[in-house]
Simulated scan of single mutants.
Amino acid sequence: MIHWTHGGEDRSARWHSEAGAAAPRRVVPADDTLPADAAYRMACEGTGLLWQGDFQNARHLLQALMRRADGRGRKPGGARGRAKASASTPAPDGSGPAQAFHLHRQAQAQRARVLGMLLIPVQGDHTIALRRAPDWRPALAEAWGAPDGTPRVVALRELLGIVGAHEWRKKGVEVPALGTPPGNRIHPHYGVFSPVRGEYVELVAQVPLPAGAKALAFDIGTGTGVLAAVLARRGVRRVVATDQDPRALQCARENLQRLSVLPQVDVQEADLFPAGRAPLVVCNPPWVPARAAAPIERAVYDEDSRMLRGFLGGLGAHLETGGEGWLILSDLAEHLGLRSRAQLLAWIEEAGLRVLGRHDTRPRHGKAADPADPLHAARAAEVTSLWRLGAAA
């Protein structure tokens, strides 16, 4: 619960943060009369600003806070400025790409903390009782579930993220590897990683299937279900798709149903592998071995390469004789100095596996061509690979 005083009365509400952020220790009411400079100073001090004014003015204030946060971050010597150092050459302070990455993450976290201080009260029925407030009840129900009558306070920035995810869910993401429109869209749910990096999906769609894979394949960490759908569209008669996130499981089932391949796919809750063996086991683990700052980041950041090592360590016990494990992995971590190619190959060998082949592709997302991105050098050099792994002879 968080507590504040308004109009001489003590008030409280449940603090809600999907990102797992701690509630502000001090909360004060704020409205349209609060200057942006004062709001920014209070937010930097850790004071939560509980908005009582016009909702659209709160959005304008958030934009003003963003400009100030980004402007401050570009001061010479600041964490954000140091993070702009090349991720393939030493930074000006003598640090390497790993240090540049960690400074970048540190700056991102600080920015998120400051922007997360602008708070919005949400009623127990998911309505926002502020002037000119939009009706976001459908979006909040998707993210939080049905209203339970409990008032909440949530960061405006997080609310906007929920609404953005709601729009993506309605519109869907076109995945060319699934065929032609309109039957090639994946609809990501809130908190489930969207397959916007289509190049890795195309690898799974194009690499020849190993012998026996038309009968059975496992998709480990299915997420939206996109790779399970690709395998089913390629003619695999039964795919077992696993995930441990309830949101991902529901998302995968809905996408597979919409794509008319759910009868071919068995969606199961599991931490990595289902029971049994298969001629083909596919996994696209998080690519960067770093700690996720929020649950939604776990599809990108895998602390200590837990999922990657778990997949490699258990693959041999779940492959049929002569079967293949397909590991879809970017080498971004190598360019950032967070994991070496030698380390990856050592884990493969220690797991009793060998490399049967590798298929590479280059990223096509905007950041790979954006020199202003703090990690541009690493992103520009990035290669995404499908590693074909088999049991060691």
Rank of each mutant, 00 (worst) to 15 (best):
W326M: 01
F218L: 12
Y301D: 07
A21T: 13
R339H: 13
A133M: 04
E320T: 15
D302S: 06
E334Q: 11
D302P: 02
A129F: 05
K171A: 14
D37K: 14
Q268K: 10
W15L: 03
A19Q: 13
R105A: 15
D266Q: 12
R247C: 11
A294E: 15
D37M: 13
R247P: 09
R197F: 09
A107Y: 01
R233E: 09
I128T: 10
S194N: 11
N255K: 08
V114Y: 00
A36M: 04
M66P: 07
W347C: 04
A155H: 06
A351W: 03
L249F: 02
L103P: 01
R152L: 12
A248F: 00
R137V: 11
P295C: 09
P138F: 08
S305E: 09
H335N: 10
K75T: 10
P279A: 06
L262F: 05
I2K: 00
G313I: 04
Q264V: 13
A30L: 09
A83E: 04
R111G: 03
R238P: 02
L308H: 02
A139C: 11
A229Q: 07
G198H: 08
L227S: 00
I128R: 01
L356V: 01
M42V: 01
P188Q: 09
A13F: 01
A368P: 00
L329T: 00
P188I: 08
N284C: 01
R82E: 07
H359N: 10
I120A: 06
Q108R: 15
I296P: 06
L231S: 05
V207D: 02
E18S: 15
A381C: 13
L61S: 08
V288L: 09
D37N: 14
V28W: 04
A129Y: 06
A293L: 14
D370G: 09
G390Y: 00
G161F: 03
C44K: 13
R82G: 05
Q206S: 12
G71W: 10
P246Y: 06
A38C: 12
P134N: 10
A205D: 01
W136P: 04
D271P: 02
P35A: 12
H3M: 09
R306T: 14
R185L: 11
V154R: 00
G8K: 05
R197N: 09
R131G: 14
Y190R: 06
A292W: 03
R388L: 08
D370R: 13
